[in-house]
Amino acid sequence: MTTTKSDALLPAQGIEAPRSGRIDPKYLRSGSSKSGSFEMAAWVFMRVSGAALVVLIFVHLTVNLLVGEGIHQIDFGFVAGKWANPVWQFWDLTMLWLAMLHGGNGMRTIINDYAEKDSTRMWLKSILYLSVIVIIVLGTMVIFTFEPCLLDGSGQLLESSPSFCQNV
């Protein structure tokens, strides 16, 4: 005969406490749900990166679209000119990483909130993480290796190169 805790506590032997063990499993927190403060770190990151992104993005928009000739100045040459300066390389790199992680984490919480089935949640999150990684890696590579004037095998400019490459 097994003796449960409620047997010992209740005066009537063997009669379970009302509603005991009747909670739907979907309400029970498994012991492994300890996040080790990951959720807290994510929460703090959202606030810090959000504040940083406000500055990063508005300076970016002002420099690209308002200062100088405005939107008409944007071409390969303009981008190449900016990225010749390590300050702008660092600026755009920070903006890329923060924006992708901030947006990715936002999407992660939305998926957590709205996906009802574990398998749906798992798939959506896998797609999300994959796309975040692809964009971050690709963007980082472009920032450091951007080269608008490409040469072909014989050292000639490619025909598709922008016109300013002739003057370089």
Binding site: S33, K34, S35, E39, A42, W43, T109
Partner: peptide
Amino acid sequence: LNDKEGVWRCR
């Protein structure tokens, strides 16, 4: 409440 299902779940 620092749990995955704790306060950080609040939106």
